[in-house]
Amino acid sequence: MYAFNYHRAKTVADALKLYKKADDPKFLAGGHTLIPTLKQRLARPSDLIDISGIATLKGVKVSKTAVTIGALTPHVEVATSSAVKKAIPALAGLAEEIGDPQVRHRGTMGGSVANSDPAADYPAAVLGLGATIETNARKIEADKFFKGVFETALKDGEILTKISFPVPEKAGYMRFDQPASRFALVGVFVAKFKGGVRVAVTGAGPCAFRVPAMEKALSAKFAPEALEGITVPADDLNSDIHGSAEYRAHLITVMAKRAVAAAK
């Protein structure tokens, strides 16, 4: 990696102040995307502002209606929290399947969501559950958050502080692994609320997206067979050596059915 200045922020205000002062800064949380990127010399920030020590950005709070998770909470905490497991088992289950134990102990929910990697798992849950993303400045609805490949509604220097997930009646997540990296080639999150069903897909497109036709069908009948014949057009989907757009489109329906079957 290239040389950079390292700062360790103690508070959010501290982090914002450091960010403003630097030429080309980056926030560092778990570092699971940023550090490999730096190692490969694909990024050259002047300053890294390590926010991982900010205690107020960590922790899990569960109420009857919502699960609220601090941005710096590592995946392992979400995966093993008995309160999350009870409230939204699909969310705990998703966290348990991210990467490997090392990744789950270092990687953070906020880092994953703010990065909007097309193959990350959390964006599917954020969008599928219709979560609210809070930053130092405002609240952003999930539907307005994911903009494209590594692109979100976050403004330069804005810090994601927590994410609040409404508790659904039922939810399920199914991921089809990209064979080499075991990131999501296709991941589908389905959530059944009183008011209807949400279906969000990760891995298949430039960023997480919803599938209205599936939501409509599942709102009418929450069962795998309701999805029979409903497919996402392959036109705008990702295509690589592990999966053509056509294969990904096919897998969306397969994984959606399995997510519905597994929902609890």
Binding site: P179, A180, S181, D240, I241, H242
Partner: peptide, 11 residues
């Protein structure tokens, strides 16, 4: 070389 790392070469 497309399979130039473990991100794309499946072990």
């Amino acid at each position: 070389l497309i399979t130039g790392s473990y991100m794309d070469y499946t072990m």
